[in-house]
């Protein structure tokens, strides 16, 4: 019967769902699926040769290591920035708050050439470090700096709203029960914020793993030394080794999906607290 197929009173369900699915399929799903189909054309030997080659293994190590370190540094400083922005008043706070999103808004190529120039031995910052024998640009340290830059907003923006929503009664309760300031922070506030902090960390980490634009300029792109996975894939593409690029891309995609899953689970975990505390 026609009647039972009606979905309430609002029109456009089939139109909008159809358009959504069509557009999603054309732009996202089919192209992504193509990667997996293409990689299945490779034999296992070809696949493993590419995916477990020494330059690839070195690239994974560097990508994971640098991304992890960058996310960790951001976790610490991003947390402090979020704390200061929510809890304290100081001159220029609004400006700093708006500026935090700069790494999102600034095209990565601009970030890349800027950081490479700044940290070059004759640059504003590199010039200060050169006398101590510290080289940043064209080294692994430079990659770490670039990944820290692009990951900076994630922690701030995930922790900030949770911290702002935190009921000040919780701290007052902790204080009334005899906790000092440090104990109140460590035993009450920090556990409440830790899911958000972890989520921000994972987001920053995931973003850093895939980053290309800001790294390509500051890295010397030397295999085994300063080549992260996206640079390696780009190199294969430039050499028209499409099959090898696809194999590496599949590895990256699987890692991205796993991270996405982890972030979804984290999100679910952090919402658990909110369930008992409706806004």
């Amino acid at each position: 019967m026609l009647r039972s197929q009606q979905r309430g009173v609002l029109p456009g369900f089939r139109l909008t769902l159809g358009y959504t699915l069509l557009y999603l399929s054309l732009i996202v799903i089919i192209p992504l699926a193509a990667t997996f189909v293409k990689s299945s054309e490779l034999s296992w030997a070809q696949f493993s040769q590419t995916v477990f080659s020494p330059p690839a293994l070195a690239a994974y190590r560097l990508s994971f290591g640098a991304s992890f370190l960058a996310a960790a540094v951001n976790a610490i400083f991003g947390f402090i920035v979020a704390w200061v922005l929510v809890r304290y008043d100081f001159f220029g706070k609004q400006f700093v708050d708006a500026l935090v999103d700069l790494p999102f808004a600034l095209p990565t190529a601009v970030a890349g050439i800027t950081l490479a120039t700044l940290y070059a031995p004759n640059g504003w910052l590199g010039g200060w470090l050169a006398p101590f024998g510290i080289k940043v640009s064209y080294t692994q340290l430079g990659i770490f700096i670039a990944l820290t830059f692009i990951g900076l907003p994630f922690i701030v923006r995930t922790v900030q709203p949770v911290l702002a929503d935190l009921d000040s009664e919780l701290e007052e309760a902790a204080a009334s029960l005899g906790a000092n300031r440090w104990q109140a922070f460590w035993r009450v506030i920090f556990p409440m914020l830790s899911p958000a902090l972890l989520t921000g960390f994972s987001l920053a980490f995931a973003r850093a793993l895939g980053e290309y634009g800001s790294v390509v300029f500051i890295s010397s792109n030397i295999p085994m030394k300063t080549q992260i996975v996206p640079l390696l894939i780009m190199g294969e593409l430039d050499g028209f080794h499409l099959a090898r690029a696809t194999a590496l891309a599949v590895v990256m995609l699987v890692i991205s999906f796993l991270l996405l899953l982890a972030i979804n689970l984290l999100q679910w975990w952090s919402n658990r607290y909110n369930a008992t505390n409706p806004a």
Binding site: V28, P31, T35, P230, L242, A249
Partner: peptide, 17 residues
């Protein structure tokens, strides 16, 4: 999904097609 995919791969998928 597109947010969690490296830009390099985002471009590459169209090369594959």
């Amino acid at each position: 999904l597109p947010f969690s995919i490296s830009p390099v791969i985002s471009g590459m998928i169209y090369v594959l097609i």
